[in-house]
Amino acid sequence: MSEPLVRILQVEKSFRTRSEWRWPRMFGGKKTSLASHVYAINNVSLEIERGETLCVVGETGCGKSTLARLLMGLAQPDAGVIEYQGQRIDQLNDKQRMRYRKKMQMVFQNPYASLNPRMTVYQILREAIVLHHRDWDRHQVDLFIAELLQSVGLSKDAEDRYPHEFSGGQRQRISLARALSVEPELIVADEPLAALDVSVQAQVLNLMMDKQQELGLTYLFITHDLAVVEHFATRVAVMYLGRVCEVAIRETLFKAPKHPYTQALLSSIPRLDNLTLEPIHLSGEVPTPLEKPVGCSFCGRCPLANQRCYEQIPMLELQADGSQVACHAVAEGRSWK
């Protein structure tokens, strides 16, 4: 089997909720800190194959954005390994990371915040290009920018305008152009459609698919919108409260979801083609992970939970149809009703 493009191995990340400076210990600062931790990512392992679209799905606070930030080096994991083509990239300094910045880029959620309001489109794109092609002269840069803009469906006169002069969809195109400007292999897209209108979502999604075909891109696509996932993904990873609970190829996941959370999630998307489907009701809401859970992170809301779920962390296990599920209930064959 060929080597995956990215391998994320048992990665953990927690955040301090209070990050104030306290007196150093020699001035009588207390050893026990009052700061509590939010455990955003707990022992997550994932692989991204070259050329695929891996969608990470989950609700608010499940750690999917944190995962993207860890991968892009915007935050450092507390534990675990992130590899890019077999090379560790999780502990690099800025200089060492430069090589990988050229290979992986990111598209952000909010097109109104992800472009510097004080820079023209030309300046935004130029900054990226010049950084990675120091030997290019002005003419080459200009040509490349024109080409980039055209490839994301913007006209040449967009160059000298400021981001606020564009609509949300157009800004997301600029964001994509910026990401493409370093000719990356992997694009991490963190909810790139969430802020857009339906008709514009379709435009951006189409553009992303076109680019994937054209350039052979690999996507890590983070979203909460299962309709988009069903359309766009090659493989899907479902996350809940900092853990991956199910990984499967798209067809398998949508045809035969196994983890109770996945099932509930799938049943709650309003669907136009099946109006009679009643959503599965989960009790309660996603809690804030202030303590490292001892059992399954979903056990509090899971209708199938038993004693074992509260005590033992389920691991991802390979199922007969190739999907991986982390659930005791599935392993034991417990089912609904």
Partner: peptide
């Protein structure tokens, strides 16, 4: 029509979506 057709579930998986050009 355009709005409904643009929804991802209206196209086959992996196919291009039926987009409406431009924006409001």
């Amino acid at each position: 029509q355009g709005l409904l057709n643009a929804l991802p579930q209206m196209a086959l998986p992996g196919q291009r979506l039926n987009q409406i050009q431009g924006s409001m």
